[in-house]
Computed example of a mutant assay.
Amino acid sequence: MENPNQIFENDHYNEDLPFQAALSSENLLLNVPNELAGMRLDAALAKMLPDYSRSRITTWIKDGLVLCNNQEASPKDKLIGGEELHIQIQQSDENQAFEPELMDLDIVFEDDAVIVLNKPAGLVVHPAAGNWTGTLLNGLLAHCPELSQVPRAGIVHRLDKDTSGLMVVAKTLPVQNHLVQQLQNRSVKRIYRAVADGVVPFDGKIETLIGRDPHNRLKMAVVKFGGKEAITHVKVLERYQSHSYIECSLETGRTHQIRVHMREARHPLAGDLVYGNPRHVCSQPVKDAVKKLARQALHAYRLSFVHPKSDQSVSFEAPIPDDMYYLLSVLRLESGLDSSLSKEIEWANEFADDEDDWNEDDYDVEVMYVRD
C-alpha cells in the first residue's frame, strides 16, 4: 500500500502535508492543510484518506461520525484550512476482502512460481459487492501469505462462481506479468468440458463480438458493434437424445464467453440460470439431474501454459466433478450408452497425446455460428 502521508503527488501534494493519519485505527484526528482550503469537506477528506471511497466518507459525515472543530458538519461545508477533524472510522465488509481465511483448496501443482488449483463450483474467485469474504482470494492469502504482496493475490484469470475447474495463480509480480502476457498473446490453452442443450450437429468455430447486453447490464451478449472479439472452438464428444457433451477451447477470454456463445448457437449450457433455457424439452430423469446440478454444466478441464521460470510448456487436467459426472451418467443411460464414462477416458487419452488437436484444419466446418 502506498505511504498514506504521500497523498496525490501528481496533484502537487507531498509528504510534508501537516497531518498524520493512522489508517488502521478506528478514530482519527486530522488537521486540514492549507493546500485544501476552499474544498468541500467530503472532497478534502477523500484526498486526505485515499484508502476510503468518497461515498463512504460522505456517509460518515451524514451519520455524524465526522466532527469539524468539535461540531457536526455537512459534506458540502467549505474548508478554510487549519480545521481539526475528528473521524470515527466505521469498518465495512470491504475491509475483510483481503483478509486470509483458511480454506480447503484443491492444489493440483505448486512450486515457487505458480499455484495451479481446481476450483469447486460455488466458490467466488475475487471479492466484490455481496461477496467480500469466503472467496478464493481469501483462501489463497491463508495458503500463501506472500501473495499479499502481489496484486489480486496473484490471480491472473477468473472462473464464474458456478464454473468448476483449473486456474493458475502467480506467486510473484514478475510471474504474474509473464502469465498475463501469455493470456494476451493467446499462448495459454484453456479447454472446457460442458453439457449443452440439444443435439449439437457438428464441430466448429464460434467467432463474434461480445459486450454488455444492452437490455440487461448484468449480462453479456453477442453484439454487432462495440464488443470485444471472442473466439470459441467446439468439438462434440457425445450426442444424447436431448443434450450434447462438448469440449470448448478458448482463443480469447471474455466474460461468460462459452455460456454466451453456446446460447447464441441455440445450444445453451444445461442448468445455466442466466443464459440457459429452463423450458428445454427432455425426459423427467434428465430434468431432475439438471435440477440437482444447480449450476451451469461447465468445467475447466485442461490448462496449458509456458512455465515462467523454466520456459517449458506444462499442462494440467482436472477430472469431471461428481455433479457433472452424475448428469452425464443419466444422459448416457437414457441414450443406451455405457454410463461408466469409458469414452471420457478415451477422449482424455487421445487429447493428451495430441498437441495440435485444436488446429482449425481439424474441423469439419470452419464456422459453427458467426454473427455479421
Rank of each mutant, 00 (worst) to 15 (best):
residue 118 N to D: 15
residue 121 A to N: 06
residue 121 A to T: 10
residue 122 G to F: 00
residue 122 G to R: 02
residue 124 V to R: 08
residue 125 V to K: 00
residue 125 V to W: 00
residue 128 A to E: 08
residue 134 G to I: 01
residue 135 T to G: 03
residue 136 L to M: 04
residue 138 N to H: 12
residue 139 G to Q: 01
residue 140 L to N: 06
residue 144 C to R: 13
residue 144 C to T: 12
residue 146 E to L: 15
residue 146 E to H: 14
residue 147 L to P: 01
residue 149 Q to M: 07
residue 151 P to K: 14
residue 152 R to P: 00
residue 156 V to W: 04
residue 157 H to P: 07
residue 160 D to L: 05
residue 161 K to L: 01
residue 162 D to N: 15
residue 162 D to T: 05
residue 168 V to Q: 02
residue 169 V to L: 03
residue 169 V to N: 02
residue 171 K to C: 00
residue 172 T to N: 02
residue 173 L to M: 14
residue 176 Q to D: 03
residue 177 N to D: 12
residue 178 H to F: 15
residue 180 V to K: 12
residue 182 Q to T: 06
residue 185 N to H: 14
residue 185 N to R: 13
residue 191 I to P: 00
residue 192 Y to E: 01
residue 194 A to G: 10
residue 194 A to V: 02
residue 197 D to V: 09
residue 198 G to Q: 09
residue 199 V to W: 12
residue 199 V to C: 13
residue 200 V to Q: 03
residue 201 P to Q: 12
residue 202 F to N: 14
residue 202 F to P: 00
residue 202 F to W: 11
residue 202 F to K: 15
residue 203 D to E: 14
residue 203 D to N: 15
residue 203 D to Y: 04
residue 204 G to T: 11
residue 206 I to A: 06
residue 210 I to T: 08
residue 210 I to S: 09
residue 214 P to C: 05
residue 214 P to L: 03
residue 215 H to M: 08
residue 216 N to Q: 10
residue 216 N to Y: 08
residue 218 L to F: 09
residue 218 L to V: 04
residue 221 A to W: 08
residue 225 F to W: 14
residue 225 F to M: 14
residue 228 K to A: 08
residue 229 E to N: 15
residue 230 A to K: 05
residue 232 T to W: 11
residue 234 V to C: 11
residue 235 K to S: 15
residue 238 E to L: 09
residue 239 R to C: 05
residue 240 Y to S: 06
residue 242 S to F: 15
residue 242 S to E: 13
residue 243 H to M: 13
residue 244 S to A: 10
residue 252 T to S: 09
residue 252 T to F: 08
